[in-house]
Nucleic acid binder design. Structure first.
Length: 154
DNA sequence: GCCAACGTTGGC
DNA sequence: GCCAACGTTGGC
């Protein structure tokens, strides 16, 4: 089983939105980056766990844990001209973008902030993609060691 | 195939 | 709101 991190802007869709969703489940739509797409389409498996991360906000932090409940399938929002994530280059016969479904397992007891994690960037969390300068990937893998260390911070 | 221009991401 | 970093686009 692999571990991941999923970014979401709390102003758009935060951890409490997921907690309020039917069956605490949502499709992770709107990802328009090829590397992130490949992770969702090819590598994320049912039962994998992921950190739910709040980005582009006052306190960037990991705030919860989700599980993959449905593996990669075409992101239909790319087909809808009225959708903000519409991409005319993707059509149902040859989908360009994929998504997974995730379910909230639990919120963390407290947010693990980006600043806190950065304090370990040279030691326990060395190599963690989230801490790379200029990191813009919205779906990224987390090693088992980093996963365990971050959970221990909780 | 190169690279400048542009749009987006995301921390601060 | 600013701006650095990055991915994408399109002219050549």
């Amino acid at each position: 089983m692999r571990h991941w991190l999923l970014k979401s802007e709390p102003d758009v869709f935060g951890i409490d939105d997921l907690a309020a969703a039917p069956r605490k489940t949502t499709c992770w739509d709107g990802v328009r980056n090829y590397q992130a797409r490949n992770f969702m389409r090819d590598e994320m498996k049912r039962g994998d766990l992921a950190f739910f991360y709040h980005s582009n906000c006052a306190e960037p932090a990991i705030v919860g844990i989700v599980s993959v409940v449905k593996e990669g399938y075409p992101d239909h929002t790319a087909f809808d001209p009225r959708d903000p994530h519409y991409d005319p280059g993707s059509d149902p016969d040859a989908p360009r973008w994929y998504m997974v479904d995730v379910k909230l397992e639990r919120k963390l007891k407290r947010p693990i902030t980006l600043a806190e994690m950065r304090a370990h960037a040279d030691r326990e969390l060395a190599g963690f993609a989230l801490l790379r300068r200029g990191n813009r990937l919205s779906v990224l893998p987390v090693s088992d060691e980093h996963w365990r260390f971050i959970l221990a911070m909780e």
